[in-house]
Design a protein around this nucleic acid. Structure first.
Lengths: 208, 208
DNA sequence: CGCCACCTTGACAACTTTCAAGCCTAGTGG
DNA sequence: CCACTAGGCTTGAAAGTTGTCAAGGTGGCG
């Protein structure tokens, strides 16, 4: 769910934010990129009546760019605590104009993001709640690479999963209970571990 | 719905495709970019059981890039007739590595696509069928700029709208009838015209 | 003129949400 | 140290939106 892979840590003031503090607001003038130093952030868009869709999660090393350079086109808020470095937009622009390597790197990450979003379009448009949650759990489990299975990031609440998957917290909760009954996952405290990756994969691909 | 804005028309063989011919297939080795010379194309991803989600439509000037340079990550098929110029992947890569301007242009279009996709995530995840269709009609009406209102591209069928919006053709058809009854649109032949843009906008933003 | 693909409409079913309790857990203050 | 409280999580029952299945309608093209 990263937004843009690491650039050189750019010079710029560092800022701290507390739990649920919004540090980037949609439709607000944009002149800063934010480079996540530590902690995590939710990136989201919302409708006037409060419905919200999480676009992605950002963590250490990700850059939240202010692309159109006029306004941010989504909002971002801290999960637990967050430290970001502010990168002036002109700085990165200048870097892109002068260094082909930097520009190519940004292009590469933008394209990776596009691929991910195309997949999520398919998920939100055509998959059932059960399939979406299974896909999310797999994504969380393999987020550090295919070698090991990680538990779901404990900073991600039911409400976050729901906003990410286009569901309600109740539906997420019910499905997690179902997966637990079916021994696909284990739940201890808030931690969710994958027990049967293959069967989860079958749920996503096929309509199981 | 364009995929990538015009580059210099690159050298490369030109190809013709007939209605519904698939010229780019997901998970297939990728070594060519396609530059649309004329006609239109549907870009989509599908699930093993046939459910499909249209990612976007491509028309004259758009470039369908083979980014990860190993496999295409979505499929594309001709709408009616299509002419594309094939651009060898190494050609564009070389251009990006040597010309900062070309790379910056690609980055810019990739970012525009990202912004569009973020909006569609919100649409598919959180908006009702009625809101989605209204948003689609507005997008079609203003696709050539804010000055004039265009009818929906007649090459786009009910099934296309459904696959784009994550709905069924029946739902699309019922909603179009409802919009017609409410005098929001007119339907003559296959052509759909917007009659009341403001009210359509109200449906999208607010939950009307 | 007739066929075929696409579109429309209806009735019904299914999935997901909504509304409403109740529960658990962690953090707080007595 | 323990009870209390607040927020998040779980579960149930009912409602609503959208999908499914099925039957016509319509227009274009051979």
């Amino acid at each position: 769910m990263s937004l843009i892979q690491p650039h050189n840590p750019a010079a710029g003031a560092e800022r701290h934010y507390g739990d649920r503090q919004e540090f980037m607001t949609e439709s607000t003038p944009a002149n800063m990129h934010f480079h996540v130093v530590s902690g995590g952030a939710r990136l989201f868009k919302s409708l006037p009546d409060g419905r919200r869709q999480i676009i992605g999660f950002a963590s250490r090393g990700d850059v939240l760019p202010a692309y159109p350079c006029t306004h941010y086109h989504y909002s971002a808020e801290a999960m637990h605590t967050l430290r970001v470095a502010c990168v002036p937009a002109p700085y990165l622009r200048h870097l892109h104009e002068t260094s082909p390597g930097a520009c190519a790197a940004s292009l590469h990450t933008a394209r990776q993001l596009l691929i991910g979003l195309h997949g999520r379009l398919l998920m939100l448009g055509r998959q059932t709640a059960r399939e979406r949650l299974a896909a999310f759990l797999i994504g969380q489990g393999t987020r550090m690479g295919q070698d090991a299975l990680w538990p779901v990031d404990p900073a991600i609440s039911r409400a976050d999963m729901a906003d990410f998957l286009g569901l309600t917290t109740e539906t997420v909760s019910r499905l997690l209970s179902a997966f637990h009954r079916e021994k696909l996952i284990s739940r201890q405290r808030r931690a969710i571990h994958i027990l049967d990756l293959d069967r989860l994969r079958a749920i996503v691909a096929h309509s199981g």
